[in-house]
Amino acid sequence: MSTPKPRPHIDTISQGFWDAAREGRLTVQRCDDCAHQHYPGTPVCPNCLSDKQSWAPVSGRGTLLSWVRFHRAYWDGFRDELPYNVILVGLEEGPLMLSNLIGAEPEALKIGDPLQVSFEAMDEATTLPKFRPA
């Protein structure tokens, strides 16, 4: 039995992130009270426990912190793309994100190289923030 690629799990917290991504904006959750920024979203601010938080746009700039290449398909939906890369990005604003590198192979980059977000539509409902060399 074939399974499609997994979709984002969208709930009341993450909804804002995926809405912004569909509009081509990368956001992280920012605390309205202490300005702490983090990703993924949390029900309260990990720094001050405030429950007033918003999805705030970030620069989309980051650096390559690490990367791997999957040779095994844990979902059938990824089988055709093997071996595919996953990168760890350190956003300029602090939070870490996992994503995929597009427009280059990670072997050609060094850890610490600059990256820029680049949005890729999965379908009409979902757009994924990916990264390319800056």
Partner: peptide, 10 residues
């Protein structure tokens, strides 16, 4: 299931 599944990370 995890937050990074759409990127194939697991």
């Amino acid at each position: 299931p995890g937050v990074w599944d759409p990127f194939g990370f697991t």
